[in-house]
Design a protein around this nucleic acid. Structure first.
Lengths: 187, 187
DNA sequence: TTTGACATTTACCGATCGGTTAATGTGTCA
DNA sequence: TGACACATTAACCGATCGGTAAATGTCAAA
């Protein structure tokens, strides 16, 4: 495999892990589904964990790019973007292959805080928090850090609810909660 | 193993799964940590999944009993109990072996909705929702079902945050959000 | 003391785990 | 055409997976 095919490998591995889970998908199955020999995979990644981390870092970039762009497409002001968070995740929940958040699932499969896979989740969540905190600051809210964390708690609770009970009404209900929080913080 | 030791087996298996994860802990390791031979384990449970489900159902009972009792110890009115949710989970977050919620982790390791382990999570979350909805009704809130779901979304978002970033300030921040929701719903 | 029922241990099953080694293309420059 | 570098394949490694069969221990009734 040429180096130029590495991104395609990551992309296919992402789909496989999202469908089957990190531990449940073994390297043999991964080789099959990515149409790449195990030897070629191990040319690019020293261990399975390294591949998982590459997949997560790729997912982080792709997801945040999409997420922020959709926020900006749906809302003009920072305040409205804080609420648009829940319209954007509603789109996500209704995707065919939605199976919760790949980072949440990673932190559940690798629960020890010092595990490198767990830390990839930490990075992603911190970057999201930074962005939302920025929005809360621009919106002129009382305590931007606290508000951002509250909104992200609603977002992640909504992800779990949508995964376990199905997406119907989940995002809308979280949004109406967020509306109260944002209103109070801008009063 | 006599039938009377089955509860002890479940209890020890719970500890092992909580520490190591459902897939990562194999039956051999489980036999070692529970001081029970594999054959004896399979006398009581046909498959590993059956054991996991028994562990989760046991955890469901134990957790909800503790949770509801602590709510009642900390608050007298239904309205205050809705907020005490976050004081109780704060106690939980600070336990030494806190590693997120065993049901969330189960639904992440077995993400397919029709998997029997995933359904055990569904049962638990529904029973919790029933209780909290009851509190919201007794508190005379506008839309008890919606409020209960919002509070549980905050609770589960807080669980993830406490797991990934550590417990400091998480529950308190979620509580101040819940306070606004409850106030609005009782206005 | 022998027998029968049951609990427990040991050894084992084929499959798969993450990862490696050795052989086999395949294309490039001389 | 020959030789070298490199990409790719297939076969293989010991360990472990979930689960089972056969051997061993234990104890009570006859």
């Amino acid at each position: 495999m040429s180096a130029s095919k590495k991104p395609q490998l990551i992309e296919k591995a992402l789909i496989a892990f999202n469908k089957g889970g990190y531990q449940a998908v073994g390297m043999d199955r991964l080789a099959k589904e990515t149409q790449t020999s195990k030897t070629s995979i191990y040319k690019h990644f020293a261990t399975k964990d390294d591949l998982i981390i590459a997949v997560l870092d790729h997912r982080d970039e792709k997801f945040r790019n999409w997420f922020v762009r959709r926020l900006e497409e749906l809302a003009n002001t920072p305040k409205d973007q804080l609420l648009a968070v829940f319209d954007v995740i509603d789109e996500w929940f209704k995707e065919e292959d939605f199976k919760s958040c790949m980072f949440i699932r990673a932190s559940c499969e690798y629960p020890d805080a010092d595990h490198p896979v767990h830390q990839a989740t930490k990075r992603h969540k911190r970057l999201l928090l930074t962005h939302v905190t920025g929005l809360a600051e621009q919106a002129g809210t009382k305590d931007p850090g606290a508000l951002a964390r509250q909104i992200l708690m609603l977002k992640e609770g909504a992800i779990l609810a949508a995964h376990i009970e199905g997406p119907n009404g989940v995002a809308a209900n979280a949004k109406s909660a967020a509306k109260l929080l944002v209103e109070d913080a801008t009063a």
